[in-house]
Design a protein around this nucleic acid. Sequence first.
DNA 1: ACTGAATATAAGAATATTGCAATATTCACA
DNA 2: TGTGAATATTGCAATATTCTTATATTCAGT
Lengths: 110, 110
Amino acid sequence: MNQPLHRFKAEFFKTLGHPARLAILDHLRDGEKSVNELQTLLEVDQSTVSQQLAKLRSTSIVESRKDGTTVYYSVSDPMIFKLLDVAREIFNNQLVGTKDMLQQLNEEVP
Amino acid sequence: MNQPLHRFKAEFFKTLGHPARLAILDHLRDGEKSVNELQTLLEVDQSTVSQQLAKLRSTSIVESRKDGTTVYYSVSDPMIFKLLDVAREIFNNQLVGTKDMLQQLNEEVP
DNA sequence: ACTGAATATAAGAATATTGCAATATTCACA
DNA sequence: TGTGAATATTGCAATATTCTTATATTCAGT
């Protein structure tokens, strides 16, 4: 049943399963950002950003580069963005589905 | 900051973040399966499968069809498999990375 | 060495998820 | 209608995650 691999993959997806972390990844689409920049973009406090980044690091989704006292984060594999894009397509499909359904419901009413 | 959308997407990824649910999706790659079939394939008890299926249903990742007393589940959007495939590629990349690293380490030893 | 700035980690309460056992529901058929 | 088979739901204890606050660490400049 490939337990260990599924466990591993589950960790990966679980890491993506948090609004703040998804927001971070979205901001990293146009290149690396410092913790400070992310903090102001997300409007959450320092330790929260740092903790979420730590989790993203723990699954190797992001990597960090230190320059003086500031730490820059970037997505470690561009394929991550492809994954997010595919996810977006799935959401779009779903939304289109429900939109059509609503439309049909409306059409039923004379 | 697009909070609600990120919340929504997070729910989606969180749902994928569980070994048993990933295993279920893998089994659904070759078409629909009944709860019973999944139960024997996964070797877990009935209520557990049912619960995980419920969670997958709640995010519209799978859908169900009833025939008599048996319920057949299938993935509602083939794009889900594409997503899993992209994820697999990401894992492969990571593994190749660590493999290369191990190799380099070995080469350093005379 | 001392100070301030940037980031990380620790600790603990609050909340959410999971797994298991028991109970409910739904359906086919005698 | 009653019975069994297939699936779903419920109720909790166990576990894991998140949020917040406080404290550490690391580095540059003086």
